[in-house]
């Protein structure tokens, strides 16, 4: 193990390490702690210039209450949910199938197709922007959740297919051969042999895509306009212009907007990290 395990280090380093850990963490998360602090302050604190000190009174309920009952925030949150969930389902479903095809079968164009999916991942969004916006408008889907969902599914399929294909590659192939010898049809092999083994990959991809899509801002701005379809990342700017310079409300709004992926991450931490670090270990 590297660096040297703590148990084998000197007593002084052991103690200082234990002290250093919480200190480093607080320093690292200082920006977040500051916003959390902002969001429970009364407005008067900002008027009096008490930005970074302790709140003079505890106003979390009224601040968060106003975010939920006095703004479009709940609508934006719902929009985000209705954009994110279908995208997760769609992208995972498409890439399961594509990953199965590329991971199990040997055919000439297998690798080229696989690399097209990977390459598409790295492309700058901007080169897709004008045509995709145009296409969405011509399908009458501009400023709708469906328009965003369709694009997100398509784009995320690249990354998801890379992920799924590599996962399926690592499954024991004799299992599939055995099923073939039994005369089981190919789509049944997918459904009853491969799919059950893919559960960890499905979970990892689902949380990852959830986070990516929830946090997307660029496409939200390009493909949607108002509170009817905009997700919370884009909505927060409207929210902020509504409460200009009202830091206690802006910070409460930001925390609400950021929360769902955070909850997701803490609930499914293992899968999340397994997904993100795919390929980091050979």
């Amino acid at each position: 193990m590297f660096p040297k395990p703590l148990e084998k280090s000197s007593r002084t380093w052991q103690i200082s390490y234990q002290l250093l850990l919480p200190f480093a963490l607080i320093l690292w998360l200082l920006p977040l702690l500051a916003v959390a602090n902002f969001s429970i302050k009364p407005e008067a604190d900002f008027v009096n210039g008490n930005y970074w000190g302790l709140p003079s009174s505890f106003e979390a309920f009224s601040n968060y209450g106003r975010v939920f009952f006095d703004s479009n925030m709940p609508r934006y949150l719902l929009n985000s949910l209705f954009i994110t969930i279908p995208t997760v389902i769609g992208a995972v479903a498409l890439s399961c199938m594509a990953g199965f095809a590329l991971g199990i079968y040997k055919f000439k164009s297998n690798l080229p197709i696989f690399f097209i999916f990977i390459a598409g991942n790295f492309v700058p969004f901007q080169i897709l922007m004008v045509p995709v916006r145009d296409l969405t408008i011509s399908m009458n889907l501009y400023d709708t959740k469906t328009g965003l969902v369709l694009f997100h599914i398509a784009f995320q399929t690249g990354f998801c297919t890379l992920f799924m294909r590599n996962f399926i590659r690592a499954l024991p192939f004799p299992l599939i051969e055995a099923a073939r010898v039994e005369g089981i049809s190919e789509w049944r092999i997918f459904l009853y042999v491969v799919l059950p083994l893919m559960k960890p990959a499905l979970a990892a991809l689902a949380v990852l895509i959830f986070t990516f899509i929830w946090n997307d801002y660029f496409w939200a701005v390009v493909l949607t306009q108002g509170p009817d379809a905009q997700p919370v990342t884009a909505g927060i700017t409207e929210f902020n212009s509504q409460f200009r310079a009202a830091y206690h409300l802006m910070s409460a709004g930001s925390i609400v907007a950021a929360l769902p992926p955070v909850v997701m991450f803490f609930l499914m931490q293992k899968h999340f990290i397994a997904g993100l670090t795919l390929g980091a270990v050979k």
């Binding site: 594509a98 004008v130 995709v132 398509a154 399929t157 690249g158 049809s185 190919e186």
Partner: peptide, 28 residues
């Protein structure tokens, strides 16, 4: 079956990816 199945499985992903990623690059 073994020759056709992969294409059937690839089809939906390829259609989406072509429409929203490959073709737009050319259009840009």
């Amino acid at each position: 079956e073994i020759a056709i199945t992969p294409w059937l499985f690839l089809m939906p992903a390829m259609i989406f990816f072509t429409i929203y990623v490959i073709i737009p690059i050319g259009q840009s």
